[in-house]
Design a protein around this nucleic acid. Structure first.
Lengths: 80, 80
DNA sequence: AAATATTTGTACGTATGTATG
DNA sequence: GCATACATACGTACAAATATT
């Protein structure tokens, strides 16, 4: 999965979609953390704000939950 | 205080006036920070650039001073 | 206990693109 | 064309919570 900077879909939504699918595939398991913001920045070549926006989308969906100083965790029971 | 999007006065100047009066009232004290850009965006339903322009007006007046990574502070000695 | 590293939280600085009047 | 306004995106800085050494 690659980010298209010139596409019509905002980059942060593209990243959100990538992470969402990875979670649904089981790449990131419930109760465990997804890669850190810094890792996502490096791996996708994005700014932190963009990464955090993507995570925010998934958090709004109830898919993940960020914990200060620990990481962003996949929730056991996605609300929806 | 509410923003009038259809008025003759630009929104960022309306917001500047709102913040200026709040400072003069003492809602925001010298040496302390006014609400963050994000908060002002949310509370007034405005875009960041608009909020930043309003802050820019007050900064030009010497009423506030933005500090990178910290906030926008009410100055102790308004120049004027 | 202390120092360091990791990670998320918050906040300002800058730039670009799009749309409207 | 220009000023206004919104959305997106990258850059830089500091703070707080947690983890590691």
């Amino acid at each position: 999965m690659t980010i298209d900077h010139d596409g019509m879909v905002p980059v942060y939504r593209q990243l959100a979609a990538i992470l969402r699918e990875a979670i649904h595939r089981g790449d990131y398991l419930p109760g465990r953390a997804i890669p850190s913001e810094n890792r996502l920045m490096q791996e996708h070549g994005l700014a932190r704000e963009t990464v955090r926006k993507a995570i925010g989308v998934l958090a709004d969906e109830g898919l993940v939950q960020a914990v200060h100083g620990r990481g962003v965790f996949v929730v056991e029971r996605p609300s929806g």
